[in-house]
Structures are given as C-alpha cells and as structure tokens.
C-alpha cells in the first residue's frame, strides 16, 4: 500500500508551521504519524502537503508546574509510559499510555496527536475528559486554552481551527487522596477498545468522593463524559451499590454501534462492567 504523492515541509518554528497551514487549506499536520500514515497508505487521505512539526523546538516538555502537568505536543506515548513522575502521580495517564496500540507505535505516537485526531476509538480523549484536562491551541493570533470538555465536537472533529496547532496538553496535578484508572477491553494487544473507561477521583478526609471524572472510549461518535455517573458519586461515600448505580448510568449514557467487536448491547454492558472495575481500582489507588 502506497500513499499518493504529497509535498512535505519541516517548518522550524510554530509561526512558520501556522503560515504553511494558512497557505494550504488541505494541508495536514504530521507529528507521530501513527494514525495519519496508515490513512495515507490506504489512500483514505490524500493531502497535498504534510506539515511535519516534529522538528520544532520546545514541544517536548513533560513536567509539573503551577498545578498542572504540562505535556508538549511532541511527547510520545512511550515517554509517558516510562516517566516515573507519570507512573507515581498520574496512574490513570500511565494506564492509558500503556495500552495505546503497541510498544513500537508508542515510541512514535504522541498524546497531542491522539487527541487532535479525535478518533472516538483513541484512548486519551476519555482519559483527558476524566482528568478535566486542557489543551493549548496555538494559531495566528497566539495561544488559547480550551477545556477538554469543549474540545471534541464530533467524529474526528475538534474545536481546533485549520490553522491552529495543539501545542500542549495540561493535566491538573493530583489533589490529596487522588486515584485513577483506565480499563480497556480489547480483542488483542494493539486493538482499538471494544470499550474503555477512564476514572479519576479524589477522596476527602472523611472518605467521600470530592472530585470525580469518568470518560468512555469508543462507545459513541466521540469520547463521552459520563456526567450522571459522576453526579451519583460526588459527595458520597462510594459504596458498592453506588458504584453499581454509576456504572448502570454509564451504560445508559453511552451510544455504541455494533461492529466486529460486538453488538451495541454487549458494548453497553461492557461500559457498565468496566466502569465498576475502573472505579474500584481508582478508589483502591486513592486509598493507598
């Protein structure tokens, strides 16, 4: 499988990259390339120009500052997976990066790309919804911050303008008593999720759920935030019954379609099962 012809540019700075995007309406941004290149090989996409941002300096930040974990646009999945900081303080993020595609793909694939591509089957969107993360979009008039809740607008669609580049992802630093987990049901390693559930929460001193986020992968046209499930648990001591109730609501609030991975009914039920298991795991970690 051979891609159609295209032109290729490696702008050294963000403004130059943006200028190229402005000049070419059908240009595509190339970063890790692990979703884009397969699409080009299958000729599902035939952009005239690829703007490779991977040689732009300053986009590889992975550090905590000002109450946020800053993840630069060029940070790879493997960087997250191997980061002691992420492993110890952001277990949900570590879980997620650990199950994206396979180890070799993770050496190239970026977190920013995983979000900007807005494939509902991608794993990070649900995780970022659970975290209440933010993304930084840099365009001709500078940078703006977009809450993840308003970032995804539909199937493969985001709030990014054509001439904007997702330059950073920001994850809130964990509060005391935090725990999170990502559970992905897949047919085999490397597969997209049959269903995936991201849960992030923290417990107050009395053991009540203070903040909570639940995101669902690949059970709708875009990643879904399970708001009603969150509401059930917020402010409550998380009993098995409440967790089951939250899981049942997630089952109702997702919107899967049947495919080779299973019927809609199966996927809905898997959302319920995985939500229960993810919440239990997140709580276990919060209490540890």
């Amino acid at each position: 499988m051979i891609p159609a012809e295209f032109q290729y540019a490696t702008p050294p700075t963000i403004p130059e990259a943006i200028a190229l995007l402005q000049a070419h309406q059908d240009a595509k941004i190339l970063s890790g390339g692990q979703s884009l290149i397969p699409a080009l090989k299958l000729r599902l996409a035939t952009p005239p120009l690829l703007v490779d941002i991977s040689r732009i300096a300053g986009l590889t930040t992975l550090s905590e500052a000002g109450g946020w974990l800053h993840i630069g646009a060029l940070v790879r999945e493997a960087d997250l997976e191997e980061s002691p900081l992420v492993r110890s303080r952001y277990p949900l993020l570590h879980d997620t990066s650990h199950v994206v595609a396979d180890p070799l793909v993770r050496n190239l694939a970026t977190i920013a790309g995983n979000l900007a591509h807005a494939d509902p089957a991608n794993d990070h969107p649900a995780t970022m919804l659970a975290y209440r993360a933010e993304v930084v979009a840099t365009g001709p008039s500078g940078a703006r911050v977009i809450a993840v809740d308003s970032f995804f607008t539909g199937l493969f669609a985001t709030a990014l303008a054509h001439d904007e580049i997702l330059t950073e992802v920001r994850v809130p630093a964990p509060m005391a008593g935090s725990g999170g987990a990502y559970l992905k049901l897949e047919r085999k390693v490397g597969d997209f999720a049959t269903a995936g559930v991201a849960a992030q929460l923290n417990l107050d001193a009395a053991g009540r759920v203070q903040q909570i986020g639940i995101g669902l992968t690949n059970v709708g046209p875009m990643a879904i935030r399970a708001r009603r499930s969150e509401d059930v648990l917020r402010g409550q001591s998380p009993s098995d019954a409440l967790i089951a109730q939250a899981a049942a609501l997630a089952q109702e609030d997702c919107d899967p379609t049947a495919d080779l991975r299973g019927s809609a009914d199966y996927k809905r039920n898997m959302v319920r099962i995985l939500t229960m298991r993810a919440l239990h795991k997140a709580l276990e970690r919060a209490r540890a």
Partner: peptide, 16 residues
C-alpha cells in the same frame, strides 16, 4: 470471542 461467550452468559443468566 468475548462477545460470543458473553451472549451465552447473558442468555443463561450467568453474566455479571
């Protein structure tokens, strides 16, 4: 496959 086994579990009332 998981979906096939689960469908049997559900039909027999054994699914969680």
């Amino acid at each position: 496959t998981p979906q096939k086994v689960w469908a049997v579990l559900k039909e027999k009332g054994a699914a969680l």
